[in-house]
């Protein structure tokens, strides 16, 4: 009896060790090479001026890029990481930090050197600025954030061309039912409190979300708490949903979005927040790489990249690599 049990336990132990050896030690990715096949673009090569130059002086520096845990964040993190790699840095990635609280703590503690954050989110989550008090002008809000971050020894890199703010969405059928309104004010008038809107659980209590609709547009739809967003629209769980401006699903021809004419939603541009120690590592060339690589990121482009992840189910690492190649930053 005992020999059989012992044999089994030994086998399990050996198995565990083997599996452990095989699966262990991949918490710090040393940066992938991006996708494998070259993307098919119409314009052939890249403009010479855009190609990222490898600087051997960077080889001795290790830069850790972090990100939060949803598609757009993964993509942005990968883009910055792969770009810095192309510039010769040794890059480590920590792309699953979680919510902004966790990510910001990691940044301040020095576990990461930088991560991309939304201006609106940073101001409310880290500096307790009320949503209503955030300047709606993109430059003003950025300057306010940059000033606050400086006190924490963090530098806010120039913000991206795209912003990813809330956008109320519905199906085409719902829009037709309401007479095809174009702005949120019109929607608020026509849709009563009988219609419903779905959003992530937190939305119910945020002034830049459901409460904002009530305060600014005088519209109190029924709230459905779920992560489904567009799935909710498709399944008829709700009439409207709080989508995000760069959501991949918006590029499908199925949904209608409405203009935020009263500027309820604050700006949500992305800024690559870098610790001062990280800024030193980057140097001038590193900073230029960051600024250059985010330049083509318009809302349309970001939506396309998001689509590749959320709709085509590609890996963010590959999508970022394809983007850098298609835009001519790497070969």
């Amino acid at each position: 009896m005992k020999t059989s049990i012992r044999a089994l336990l030994t086998l399990l132990a050996v198995l565990a060790l083997a599996v452990g050896a095989a699966a262990c030690g991949d918490d710090d990715d040393d940066g992938g090479a991006g996708g494998s096949e070259p993307a098919s673009t119409e314009s052939g090569g890249s403009e010479q001026g855009r190609l990222i130059q490898r600087d051997d002086a960077n080889a001795s520096k290790t830069f850790t890029v972090g990100s939060k845990n949803f598609a757009e964040q993964y993509i942005l993190g990968e883009i910055y990481a792969q770009a810095l790699e192309a510039a010769g840095f040794k890059v480590r990635k920590q792309l699953d930090l979680g919510s902004e609280q966790v990510a910001f703590k990691a940044l301040r503690d020095g576990r990461i050197d930088a991560y991309p954050e939304y201006t609106g989110t940073a101001l409310t989550s880290f500096y307790r600025v009320k949503t209503d008090d955030i300047p709606r002008d993109p430059q003003e809000s950025f300057d306010q954030l940059a000033a606050e971050l400086e006190k924490d020894n963090i530098t806010a890199m120039p913000q991206t061309p795209f912003q990813n703010t809330f956008v109320i969405t519905s199906t085409k059928e719902t829009a037709e039912k309401l007479g095809n309104p174009k702005t949120l004010s019109e929607v608020a008038e026509k849709a009563g409190s009988e219609m419903s809107i779905s959003g992530f659980p937190e939305c119910r209590q945020r002034t830049d979300c459901l409460l904002g609709l009530r305060d600014v547009y005088d519209w109190t739809p029924k709230f459905v708490s779920s992560q489904g967003k567009f799935a909710d629209l498709d399944e008829g769980q709700s009439d409207f949903t709080f989508g995000f401006g760069t959501d991949g699903e918006l590029s499908l021809d199925k949904y209608v979005t409405y203009e935020d004419d009263k500027q309820l939603f604050p700006p949500y541009f992305v800024t690559f927040m870098v610790r001062d120690s990280g800024v030193e590592k980057l140097g001038e060339s590193g900073r230029q790489v960051i600024e250059a690589v985010q330049e083509p990121l318009t809302e349309e482009v970001m939506q396309e990249l998001n689509s590749r992840v959320t709709i085509d189910k590609q890996e963010p690492e590959k999508v970022a690599g394809d983007y850098l190649r298609e835009a001519g930053f790497v070969k």
């Binding site: 009320k130 008090d133 945020r206």
Partner: peptide
């Protein structure tokens, strides 16, 4: 008050 303001939690 909530972190982002506007609600009691």
């Amino acid at each position: 008050e909530s972190i982002s303001g506007g609600v009691c939690i």
